[in-house]
Design a protein around this nucleic acid. Structure first.
Lengths: 317, 317
DNA sequence: CTGAAAGCGCTAACAC
DNA sequence: GTGTTAGCGCTTTCAG
C-alpha cells in the first residue's frame, strides 16, 4: 500500500505539503497540488484511516447498535439514518451482538445510536464520557446521552380510547416478550385506557413479537362469546394471529377484531388489511441522524424529537 | 481517556511491560501483571483501536456490504455471518451505500463480503490486493476474490422440470429488476427448462422483487384460459401476487399456480402456503464467515462452497 | 522478567 | 508555499 510518504517522494515534495494538497488545504501552489494529486492517483494512494484517526481523534463513523439484523422495523430506521448521515459525509456502521460492546469500548465510532437491551448501561455511560450517544430503548440518564422514543404508552392509550368510542368493550392484549421495553409501555397504556373507561382486560395472551408466535395463538385460540378485540403489541404478532384465524375460517373483524402496532409494510398486504398505529420509522432514523450530525459538528443544540405516529384504521377492526 | 502510558505510570512499570500484561503475554511476573490489570481497571482503560490497528495492520473487523438494509434475505445471511464471526473473535460491521466504498478504500476491515452491485469492480479489485474479499452477486475474477453463489439457474431449471412432470404446461415468469443478477440467472434457467421440454414461455410479467410489485400485478392480471403457472423470481413477488389474486377471489392454485424463490419466513404464513425454492440463508452466512475466518487465520485453504437449497412444495402449486 | 526506543501513517504547529 | 518535526497510542524488537 502506498503511503503519503511515497506520494510525497514521487511528487518531489515534503510529506506535509503532500498532506496539505491531499486534504484540499489552501496555501499549496496549484502546480504542486496537481503534481501531488497525480502522484497519488498513479500510486493508487488512499489515506490510512487508522493513522488519520489516531491523529485527529475522529473516525467519521457513526455506529448503530441493534439487537438483531432481522425485522422490518430496523431496516426502515437504518435507511433513514443512512440517508442523512451520508448526505453529510459520515459513514454508517451497523453491528449487533458482541461486536457492539467492542466497537463502543474501542471508540471505533464518533457517535452511537443504540437499540439493543443487551448492551450494558456501564458500557454506554463509559462511551458517553467522550462521545454523544442516543438510546432508543431505555431510559438512561447521563451526560451526553440523549433519548428518542416512541410514545408507546400514549399512542396505545389513544388508540384504545378510540376503539372504545367505536363500541368495542371486550379487550384482550397479545403481548411481546415480557422484557421488551416497547411491550411493557404499550401494555401500560392499554391498561390505563381500559381503567379510565371502567373496563378491564379480558385476557392476556403471551406472544413474542413474531408472526410465528401470533400464528400459533391464532390457530389455538378458543373463541369466546361476545365480540372480542385483540390488541397486538406489534404488527407481526397481529399478522400471524390473523393468518391463524383465517386458516380456521374465523372472520376478522366480524367475529374478532384485531389491531397491531408499528405500521410495517406488510400490514397493508394481508387480508383483512391491518389497522395499526403507524410509526414513521424512516423519518425517525432521519431525525436521529440529524441530531447526531448537529452534535458532531457542534452546529446547534437542537432538541432530539420523538418519532411521528398516526393511527391507521383499515379493515381489521 | 486513559492511555497505556497512564496505566504504566500508575502501576509503576514501563509502557512495554504494561502492554505485555494487557495482552496476556507470558513473561510477566504475576504480581506485576496483577498490578497493571488493577491500574487499568481503575483508570477504565481500554486500548485505542486506531493505535493498535495502525501498528498491527489489522482491525479485527470484517465488513459486510449490502445494497440496502431491508429485506428478509439479508437479515438471515447477516445473522449467520455474525454468529460465526463472533465465535472467533471478529467483529461484524455492516454498511450500505456510499459508506461501503469508503470503508473498503480506507481498509477499515480485514476482509469483506460484498452483496451490492453498486460498488465498482475497481474498488473491489483494489481492496483485494491486500485483503480477502468474497463477492456474492457478481462474477469478478481476480486474485484474492472468492465467490459463493446460489445456483439460480440450476435450481430454477430443476424446479420447472418438476412442475412439467407434474403436468403444468403453461408457464409465465414474474421477474425481478432487470439488472438484478439473481433475476437474470433465474430467467435463464426458467427458459432453458421450457426449451428442453419443447415448451415456450407463456408471458413475461415485469416485477421488482417486492410484495408491492407482485400485488399490483395480482390485482390487474387478466386471467387466461388454460391452467397457468406463474413462476415468480422471488418469494416477495409471489406473496404480493397471491394477495392480489386473493382479493379478487381468484383461487390459487386451482385457477392459477404460483411459486417463489428464496424460502423466506413469511412464505409459510400466507394462504395458500407458498411453494418455493428454499435457500439456507443462515447457513450460507455461516459458510461464508467460516471461509473468511480460515483465510484471515491462514488456517487452511478450504473451498468456498455454495449455499444449500431445496425445493419445497407446499400449497400454491 | 522488565525497560528503552523505534516506528506504524498521518496531521498540524512552527519555521523559513 | 513549502519543509521539518513532534507526536497521536500502541506493539515489538532488542538489551539487559
Amino acid at each position: 500500500m502506498a503511503t503519503i510518504k511515497d506520494v510525497a517522494k514521487r511528487a518531489g515534495v515534503s510529506i506535509s505539503t503532500a498532506s496539505y494538497a491531499l486534504n484540499n488545504q489552501p496555501n499549496v501552489h496549484e502546480d504542486t497540488r496537481a503534481r501531488i494529486l497525480k502522484a497519488a492517483e498513479e500510486l493508487d494512494y488512499y489515506p490510512n484511516a487508522n493513522a488519520r484517526n489516531l491523529k485527529t481523534k475522529k473516525t467519521g463513523n457513526v455506529g448503530v447498535f441493534i439487537y438483531g439484523f432481522g425485522g422490518p422495523i430496523f431496516s426502515d430506521i437504518l435507511e433513514g439514518i443512512r440517508n442523512q448521515l451520508q448526505k453529510h459525509g459520515f459513514n454508517i456502521i451497523v453491528t449487533s451482538g458482541k461486536s457492539s460492546s467492542v466497537l463502543l469500548k474501542e471508540r471505533q465510532v464518533d457517535a452511537a445510536i443504540v437499540f439493543d437491551n443487551n448492551i450494558l448501561d456501564e458500557v454506554l455511560i463509559q462511551y458517553a464520557k467522550t462521545s454523544p450517544l442516543i438510546v432508543l430503548d431505555r431510559t438512561l440518564e447521563s451526560d451526553n446521552i440523549y433519548h428518542s422514543m416512541i410514545d408507546n404508552e400514549g399512542l396505545t392509550y389513544q388508540f384504545i380510547e378510540k376503539m372504545i368510542e367505536k363500541g368495542y368493550k371486550k379487550f384482550s392484549y397479545l403481548s411481546g416478550p415480557k422484557d421488551a421495553y416497547n411491550n411493557q409501555e404499550r401494555l401500560v397504556g392499554f391498561k390505563r385506557a381500559l381503567e379510565d373507561h371502567k373496563l378491564k382486560m379480558n385476557r392476556f395472551l403471551e406472544g413474542d413479537f413474531t408472526i410465528h408466535g401470533g400464528h400459533e395463538i391464532g390457530l389455538n385460540l378458543n373463541i369466546e362469546t361476545g365480540h372480542e378485540f385483540i390488541f397486538c403489541a406489534n404488527d407481526e404478532s397481529a399478522i400471524g394471529l390473523i393468518q391463524g384465524l383465517n386458516q380456521r375460517g374465523i372472520k376478522v373483524p366480524e367475529q374478532l377484531a384485531v389491531s397491531g402496532f408499528d405500521g410495517i409494510y406488510l400490514s397493508e398486504y394481508i387480508q383483512p388489511k391491518l389497522s395499526t398505529i403507524e410509526i414513521d420509522h424512516y423519518g425517525w432514523g432521519k431525525l436521529i441522524a440529524k441530531f447526531i450530525i448537529a452534535k458532531l459538528q457542534k452546529t446547534s443544540a437542537d432538541n432530539l424529537e420523538h418519532p411521528e405516529a398516526k393511527i391507521i384504521l383499515r379493515e381489521s377492526c
